[in-house]
């Protein structure tokens, strides 16, 4: 009996979550909930197309001249075998998800405090991603990364954040 009730509760909670999602009543979510959200799926796939989010990076030469910002995450193609195993492609999507998490975490910060942003786990993870992409560069290279939502129908491009200076 307990099992049937548990299954019903899980289904109902999924429905409830879905209902909240449908009515746009989602609030700020605690980290504990986010870690266990997999238990209560929302099933709202691609319901609202978002503006393209681009993570880009620029580096400074030894003379102190900055390069232009270059997009960091380039999607990899793949043959039919990726229908079975798409390890690189899914890792790429997980990296992109990190940028989205950082934007989401920054949006709930009450202040425009660079220190608070720097302390975010998502900031550290994106920084690690940028560092790993610049691994071939010389030690001591200075760099900055930027998150920007590109223009889409009816919405202009928007710079979401530019990091402080970091050194490899």
């Amino acid at each position: 009996m307990i099992v049937y009730v548990a299954l019903l509760v899980l289904l109902s909670l999924t429905l409830l979550g879905a209902h909240q999602a449908l009515s746009g009543a989602g609030g700020p979510r605690s980290r504990a909930w986010v870690s266990l959200r997999v238990l209560l799926p929302s099933w709202r796939f691609f319901d609202r197309p978002t503006a393209p989010l681009v993570l880009s990076v620029r580096t400074a030469s030894e003379a102190g001249v900055w390069s232009a910002f270059e997009p960091l995450l380039q999607a990899t193609g793949g043959g039919l075998t990726t229908l079975l195993v798409n390890a690189r492609g899914n890792l790429h999507l997980a990296y992109h998800q990190l940028s989205e998490q950082l934007v989401s975490d920054l949006s709930v910060l009450s202040t425009d405090d660079a220190e608070a942003a720097r302390a975010l786990v998502s900031y550290e993870l994106v920084l690690a991603l940028v560092r790993s992409s610049l691994a071939a560069r010389a030690t001591g290279t200075r760099f900055q990364f930027r998150l920007r939502s590109e223009a889409r129908a009816g919405e202009p491009a928007q710079e979401l954040m530019t990091s402080e200076l970091h050194v490899l």
Partner: peptide, 14 residues
């Protein structure tokens, strides 16, 4: 069933 229907209904709202 929910995975498809909820996805469909939420798209319909957009």
């Amino acid at each position: 069933t929910l995975s498809y229907c909820v996805a469909g209904l939420s798209k319909l709202r957009d």
